[in-house]
């Protein structure tokens, strides 16, 4: 019987306590905000959309290798010695034409692993977090600043250069080979003549 009355009393009393708490909260200012109109200020280290500053990129491929989901796709073409690609802001000399720098942001997992290995700090995370698209393809960001024509040109350039180099190399090799052959021939000749000489000399002697 006592338990019975106690149960009744506890039931009513704890409900009243609970109601007191919720009633108090009726007058507590709300903690939510009207999102698209009002926005929460983001802290400085915030990790959202990736951005690549192509002026500084040297095409070293370190970010792509660090990425756990393979969302960065980089293609580069070597420059020819005559071309000046300029310098990055921290004084590194560029040596590669970055013909393709695609980030599939739909795959990106925002882990920031690509940011740390970058030697020129050119890939970083910005505070943009509203970038939904209607088509998946539009989420693949092309950062490369080069026009397709330019890319072709650079490729051609490099190939030409390569070809030239090859040719030069080949020529050099040929020359070298020739030289070597020549040298050999000469040597042989020398030896021959020497031999001859010796022979002759021997002959002479004999």
């Amino acid at each position: 019987m006592r338990q019975y009355l106690k149960n009744t009393w506890e039931g009513i009393w704890t409900i009243i306590i609970g109601m007191k708490i919720t009633f108090k909260h009726l007058f507590v200012p709300s903690v939510t905000i009207q999102y698209p109109d009002q926005k929460v200020p983001l802290p400085e280290r915030v990790r959202n959309r990736l951005y690549v500053n192509m002026d500084d990129c040297i095409g070293c491929d370190q970010c792509a290798r660090a990425c756990p989901v393979n969302c960065i796709d980089i293609e580069t073409v070597k420059s020819t010695p005559g071309e000046n690609l300029g310098q990055t802001s921290n004084g590194k000399k560029k040596a590669l034409w970055v013909t393709k720098f695609d980030i599939d942001i739909a795959k990106c997992c925002y882990c920031q692993l690509c940011v740390f290995p970058c030697p020129t700090d050119c890939i970083y995370m910005t505070d943009v977090y509203e970038f939904s698209e209607f088509k998946r393809n539009e989420l693949i960001y092309n950062f490369s600043t080069m026009q397709p024509g330019e890319v072709e040109e650079k490729k051609d350039n490099f190939e030409k250069f390569q070809a030239e180099k090859e040719a030069q190399k080949a020529a050099a090799a040929k020359a070298k080979a020739e030289a070597a052959a020549k040298a050999k021939a000469e040597k042989e000749k020398d030896e021959k003549s020497k031999n001859n000489n010796s022979k002759s000399s021997s002959n002479d002697v004999s």
């Binding site: 009726l26 200012p29 709300s30 939510t32 905000i33």
Partner: peptide, 13 residues
């Protein structure tokens, strides 16, 4: 609205 304000929210706005 009652539920929203009891839960420190705004409710429909």
């Amino acid at each position: 609205k009652v539920s929203a304000h009891m839960q420190d929210r705004l409710g429909p706005m």
